[in-house]
Amino acid sequence: MSPKIDKDTVDRLAHLARLEFNETEKAELVQNMNRMLVFVDKLNELNTDKVEPLIYMCDEVNILREDVMKVTITQKEALMNAPQKDSDYIKVPKVVDNKK
């Protein structure tokens, strides 16, 4: 089978995953991912036509609790780990109208 991943696929996936790679890393990823796909293609040896996908690992369903409002994290705590902040808000680089 022909390789499924080329440099364009890596670029497209990197954008979806919000990651960036330099040219050397991209070349390594193309090679690594194609090898991994050959490795996982082994699964196609198994006939799974009448098998339902296993999605939930537990038998129990709908474990409910009372919907009670409570403060679990204060604003001060929420700001504690923010990379950039002022006294009330988390700061981010300018989002709107950034292009000239």
Binding site: A17, L29, T48
Partner: peptide
């Protein structure tokens, strides 16, 4: 990053059934 990229691939349009669903079916077996 390698694992995020592979995971993004197996969940991406056109490959979800061939990889992710297939994996879940094998897991049931």
């Amino acid at each position: 990053k390698r694992r995020i990229m592979l995971g993004t691939f197996v969940l991406s349009e056109g490959y979800y059934d061939a990889y992710y669903s297939k994996g879940q079916k094998v897991r049931r077996l």
